[in-house]
Design a protein around this nucleic acid. Structure first.
Lengths: 167, 167
DNA sequence: CCTAATAGGACTAAAATGGTCCTGAATGCA
DNA sequence: TGCATTCAGGACCATTTTAGTCCTATTAGG
């Protein structure tokens, strides 16, 4: 994988770094509970060391991997793969940036009067995040085809192999 | 609205242009079936004329609005608001760019061997698009609180006013 | 105390985004 | 016919993001 990102739809885009993160997490999940150094993971995945390193730091801050420093240090998953969701990964890698509504800076916008639209997009956004929260690393890896309950998105996710691809 | 985009999560981000598009479409939907020039719409929405114009061109190409040129020309919705979905808007404004899987250029990636991850993200992506296809302009405008059937995302969308905001 | 590792940033290059502007083509009307 | 109006299509530039590299701590083992 690691998608050649040139032609992905801007919205709903998965940044390369997020993708790297998934690949790396997949490794950590596969190789048992073993500890792996950044160097090892870089080699295993084929990602450049500096970049892999950067990603791992992000995952560390996000609490998805646990690290030990010094000689014989390395990284492990901080929790079972089934307890790590897609949003977790995205948030960890793409920063702690909040979901800022226009509401948080009222008046900044200028077009607010007649506009009921902004709120709706925010809700869409949040809804997607929720759905993404139900997609677990185990599913992303492909180990677990379908999640149990809720998970509107996850259901669709697990249900079919080849989906329609829009032009 | 027109969200002040500085602090939105990169992924799941709605580009400003898409937001503008929604605001403009909302106007076209509200003002009956009337025809409006780019100038009028710019004034009504508060968006700069060149920008509004650009957005309208995109919507035209995407088939969401119909245009007539020349004196007394202008724009109208190409179909009823209930038949225009969020994905339609996004696609129209953010380009005709396809959903390119690694699959379409096999071998480009280099890390393909051990990687089952890419596909999954693609499926997530497609799943979100599907869900977004069920969110109609009428809902974005707020005229119709909740859609009828299907629409996993739409259900969540219509259900609650103020949702949890992640840090 | 020396070596192996991670933590945290600073920094750069390349790409995407938002916005402006110009030129061309269609339409209506005097 | 010819002029004013209005959309179509891009070229273009400035700014912001993203990706990627590197340097300097800090922590742990032997």
């Amino acid at each position: 994988m690691v998608l050649n990102a040139e032609r992905l739809p801007p919205m709903l885009r998965i940044s390369k770094l997020t993708d790297y993160a998934t690949v790396i997490l997949a490794r950590l999940a596969e190789e048992g509970a073993g500890q792996h150094t950044a160097v090892e993971l870089a080699e295993l995945t084929g990602i450049g060391l500096p970049t892999a390193s950067k990603v791992l730091k992000g995952l560390q801050r996000g609490g998805l991997v646990a690290s030990t420093r010094g000689a014989r240090g390395g990284y492990t998953l901080a929790r079972p793969a089934a307890a790590i969701s897609a949003v977790d990964i995205i948030d960890a890698v793409e920063g702690p940036l909040g979901l800022t509504e226009c509401a948080s800076h009222p008046g900044q916008c200028g077009l607010e009067p007649s506009c009921r639209v902004g709120r709706s997009w925010q809700r869409v956004n949040v809804a997607i995040r929720r759905a993404l929260g139900d997609v677990k690393l185990t599913q992303l890896i492909g180990r677990e085809a379908n999640a149990a309950p809720a998970a509107d998105l996850a259901v669709v996710l697990g249900s079919r192999p080849g989906l329609r691809v829009r032009s």
